[in-house]
Structures are given as structure tokens and as C-alpha cells.
Amino acid sequence: MAAVATTTATFLGMEFIAWFMHKFVLHGPLWFLHRSHHVRHPHHFERNDFFFLFYGALSALLIIYGSPEKDFRFWMGVGIAAYGTVYFFVHDVLIHGRMRFWRKSRNTYLRALNMAHKMHHKTTSRDNSEEFGMLWVSPRYFALALRKPAPTRTLRQPAVNSKSKQLEGKDS
């Protein structure tokens, strides 16, 4: 039971740590690295991706050093790793589309999260941004997501070239 509590508390605590680091460190002294995330660029990777290495290394070290006894360090490392995994899928895959297998969601929470993140990226400078969290969303974005209809899903029809159309016309 202590393992579940430690992992859950670490996961939830990471949201506050991520918010704090994003607002006061990334939009502060480390803006020179984070700026790459706020401007369009043709690269698959950006300087901002280096922050993954920091949290990944912290998680790995906690897991490694806590592994022999499966003590609190191990479960804190698991909580950080779980947060990082959710962060990757929500932020990099869903919101920024860095992998194209999950494009749109009809889920109100995920749509509100996406709207809040778009508002964060509305500015390309280190100042005047809002919405620094990853999983916590201001209630106003929930209200907006409820008012704005969810995208409809339509299946793409295969492209028909002009020769196929001509052949169909001759057969009839």
C-alpha cells in the first residue's frame, strides 16, 4: 500500500514540479533552451527535448538506487517515469502531433487541455504566457471545450484518379 501511495503522490507532485519549473525556470533562466519549443522549426528534435534527459536520469537513478530494497526511492522513480510517459503521450503525441497516430480527441478533458496548451503557445516570448501545467487545466477551458462541439470523425474516401472516372463512364 505504501508503494502505491508513494508512486501516486510522486506522480501528482510532478504536476506541481513541472508547472513550477516551466513557469519560473524554463520561461526564466533556461529560456534559451525552452525557446525552441515556442517557435516553428523544421527539425524533429528541439533543444527543449534535453529536459527529458534530466527527468529520465532522475527517475532512472531513483529506480536503480531504490531497487535492492524496493524502498521509497524506487517508487518515486516509478512515479516520475509514469508522469513522463503520460507527458509524452499527452503533450508530444496528442497536443503537438510529433507522432501521427493520435490526432484528435472527442474527450472533453483532452480537448480542454489542448486549448489551454494552444493558449500557452500563443506567445513566442518568455513573458506573457499562461497555462504552464501539463495535466491540470483551468476551469474556463473545460467550459470552452463543452461549448465548442467535438470534431466529427469522417472516414477518408480513397482518391479516385481521372482515368478511373473515365473508365466508369464508358462502362455505363
Rank of each mutant, 00 (worst) to 15 (best):
R40L: 12
G133L: 05
D92H: 09
S162T: 12
Y65K: 07
F20D: 14
I95D: 10
E15F: 05
L30T: 02
H41T: 14
T10Q: 06
S105E: 00
A57G: 11
S129W: 00
A9P: 13
E46P: 08
R98T: 10
I95V: 07
T123M: 10
L144N: 05
S138P: 03
R103V: 04
M99F: 10
F20R: 09
D49V: 08
P68Y: 12
R73N: 14
L135T: 01
F101C: 00
R40T: 15
V25N: 03
E168L: 15
S129R: 01
M119F: 10
W31T: 04
L110A: 02
R126G: 09
F54E: 06
P42I: 11
A82D: 04
R147V: 12
R111I: 01
E168R: 15
G79C: 12
P158S: 04
S172V: 11
A9Q: 13
M21H: 15
F101Y: 03
Y109K: 00
W31I: 03
P42T: 11
A18N: 12
T154I: 11
S125I: 05
S105K: 01
F88M: 11
N114H: 04
F50W: 09
S162C: 10
W102V: 01
R103D: 05
V137S: 00
V90N: 12
A82F: 15
F51Q: 12
F72Q: 11
F20I: 14
H44P: 09
P151V: 05
A81Y: 10
V90Y: 13
M115S: 02
Y65H: 05
F16P: 01
V39E: 10
F142C: 09
P158L: 12
